[in-house]
Every structure is written in C-alpha cells, then in structure tokens.
Amino acid sequence: MKIRKTSLLFFLGPALFVVALFYIIPLFLSVYISFTPMVDWNVNRYLTQFVGLQNYERLFHIVMYDPDMRAVIMTTVVFVLVTLVINVFGGLLLALATYFMDEKMSAAYQGLWLLPRMTPIAVYSLLWYYFFHSSGIGVLNSILLKLHLINHPIALGLDPKYLPWGAWFIIIFVNGLVGVSYGMIIFYSAFKSIPRELIIAARVDGASTTRIIRHILLPLTKWHFTFVTVWQMFSLLMTYAQTFLLVEWRVVDSTWGQTWALYVFRTAFTTTKDQGLAAAASTFLSIIGIILGIIALKALGYEKMILEPKGDI
C-alpha cells in the first residue's frame, strides 16, 4: 500500500514534534554548549562565545592525565558491563521462572520484582542508604555484626581498604535490582506470545523443560534479547540518579562510585559547574553510546530482523 506524504505527516507529526522538543533540541543545545566556554550557567555572557574544540581538548587532557578520570572510565566500563549482564540474564531467568509458574503466582512474583522500579528514586535510594550505611545503624553492618563476621561497622563503599570493589558492588547491586524488571517484563510477554501449541508440541515430542527453553523459547525470542540488551546498555550508560544520591549521601566513594554520566552531571551542576566541559563529555558519551549500539545490533543480527519483509503491509 502506498501512503501519501501528507497523511504520513498527519499521523507521525505529533510524535515527531515530541521527539524534537524533548530529545533533538536538547541534544543540539548540549552539542552547541560544548563549543562554548560556559561556566556557572552564565548564559548571557558565554552563550555567544565560541571556543572551537577547546572543551574537547580539555577533556582529552583530563582523560590522559587525571587519575580520577581513569577511575571514572574504569567504573563506567565495569558498571555497565556487569550490570548489563545482571539485568539481561537476571531478567531472562525471572521471565523463565515466572513463565512456568501458574498465573497468580507469577503475577505476585513479578509485582515484587517491579517494586524497585515503581518506588520513587529518592525513596529507593534512601532504602539502600540505610542498608549500606557505614555506621552500626546500617542494616548490612548490623547483620554482619550479629553474625560475628566483623567486629566494627565497615564502610563498604568508602573505606579505601575495599575500594574500588566495595563502591562498585553497591552501585551495581542497587542499579541491577532496578534493571532486571525491564528484561523480565519484555521476555515474559515475548514468551507468552509464543503459541501455546508450540510448547505442547515440544512436550509431546519428548522435550524436557530445559530443552523447551533451549530449543523453543530462546530461539524464538532472539530479537527481544537484542532489544533488551541494547536498550539496557543505553540506559546504563546514561543513568546516574541513584548513584548520584548514594554519592551525595556519602554511601559510596565519589571517585570510584562515579560513572561517566554522573561525572557529566556533577561537573555541570555540583562540582566545578563547568558546563562547557560537561557538554563535551556528554557529547562524547553519546557518540560512544551510538557506536556501541550499532556494534551490538550488528553483532546480534538486528539487520536480518528488519530486512526480510513479510509481504506488503
């Protein structure tokens, strides 16, 4: 079917407008700011000054010579990779577990895992603030003390003895718990959309549950796997809210608990208020994100999914 351009615009127009307003324009603004020397949000003074690639040169310099920036990069890589694996495979495991439960059980179980995502970020972070608190009031500390595994309260995310692993553990744990529900929901609904007869047929053919998972459920949800992986990778690259609060509240170390996205946020708003540098770092992160996204989609075979048309729509 041929669709006329005007009607296409009519239907897609509102969505395009929203995308432009909330995504494209801020993106351009941020790229633009990265070419200005803006600090302290002094828009009047700096917005029209143009410094070329100076901010990028500064960023490059920091990356090369500032050990704290090395920490940021290492933290980002470890955080994104480990949390991604936890998110995707944790979500997959939860989806599989709930798929083979009866409906009521699985709904309750899924609700439980959705709680972290439904809880406001501040409340959720506060929960873990108390859990990982470095004094005796910290839940983790009091449990470990009760079990006589430690003699004094420990500061897992702060004490240099445990760094960087302590800080990494906390931010990965806290974000991983929020993220698994996403994969769980997507995978679960993907499994549910597989015709029931296919599963029955496999059972009749003599397949055990593990075989059904391996030969039917997983191959038929490859694209969902791709999608969840890429999507989660993007959101993990960009996320900072929980981590920001944990850093601000002094639960995790500000050096080893700081991902690139958080570095951008703190540079722009709390530490040096150097928006020009922050914008450059943010643009750089976007470019890395896009490159990684393309690599991931290629590696996981996204093209094949969108090419083969199933006939005229």
Binding site: E197, I200, A202, L220
Partner: peptide, 8 residues
Amino acid sequence: FQNYALYP
C-alpha cells in the same frame, strides 16, 4: 494441531 504448530 489445527494451526500445525510447526517450529517457525
């Protein structure tokens, strides 16, 4: 099966 349920 009615819908054949071949593994796609």
